[in-house]
Design a protein around this nucleic acid. Sequence first.
DNA 1: TATTGTTATACTCTATAACTATA
DNA 2: TATAGTTATAGAGTATAACAATA
Lengths: 164, 164
Amino acid sequence: MRKRDRDSGQGADAGARSAFNYGPLQNQLGYLLRRAQIAVFRDFFAVFDEFDIRPAQYSVLTLIECNPGLSQTEICKALGIQKPNFVPVLDALEARGFVRRASTPSDRRSYALFLTAAGQNFVRKLHRAAAKHERRIIERVGVHAHDCIFEVLRNLASSSDEER
Amino acid sequence: MRKRDRDSGQGADAGARSAFNYGPLQNQLGYLLRRAQIAVFRDFFAVFDEFDIRPAQYSVLTLIECNPGLSQTEICKALGIQKPNFVPVLDALEARGFVRRASTPSDRRSYALFLTAAGQNFVRKLHRAAAKHERRIIERVGVHAHDCIFEVLRNLASSSDEER
DNA sequence: TATTGTTATACTCTATAACTATA
DNA sequence: TATAGTTATAGAGTATAACAATA
């Protein structure tokens, strides 16, 4: 069965655009941001399915790759994760042999985090998948729009950093 | 390999801008979209705190307001919510006297949803708060960027509608 | 047989308090 | 005393199977 074009048969609305009136929601950034993020993550999951990796795990691996030796607290701060919630995430990545908790001589409370050789190899594959995913998005919205939106999103995202 | 030269003695990084290297994440829409959405929702919560209303509840009230008489299934379709998850959401709004489940004569399985008078009054207050929230965002990113980003976000969001 | 609203359930994500071992 | 990592726990959000009433 098709969509159930509730507003009778006008061919004008040919694209079978959603028949609902979203009112003020249509002009509210928060709502659109959430819907867009869900849609983009859906594509992310499709591309990363074969690797059994979630967005948060990918960002953790990338951050450790680009900043070897960071502590757990620092990674948490960088990604906006709570320390207690980060423990099982890291445990899983360590159990799969991608990350190493190295004890630090200077402060025996904390660990310095590193990718293993397997982890480095793995994250390179992930980056290739991520690039493919990103190309699909650019193809959809256009290069110019893609560039333009980044500036705005970085601006918005940084507003939450400020209050810390 | 370099060993944590990050926190040598830098006064150079005066702005205390984040000292982390985000690598490829900086150029990935999914990551930025998530961070931006979290930041925007944080402001939403601040503005809506006094009303004890969450984003999903606000969107439900708005959709019923703009489309009186819709069934639960239709609301779910419009907002991308699973039917079982929608039941407690609606229960709460009904318990607070904002929404009415009206039995429909034509199909006795389904309810037609309407706002009560109190609900209509309440949602108007919410819209005013939402407008205030939106003005804060526009003030931050600029009118032009705000307009530009909407087009792209709607495009992205609609990509998930298509596959249903 | 199919659909509407519902219950039950499970899994993820997120948030907070409190513990331990170090500092 | 303060901090790093950890444990336990509780609350949202999300997903699926299955049921009763109705179509």
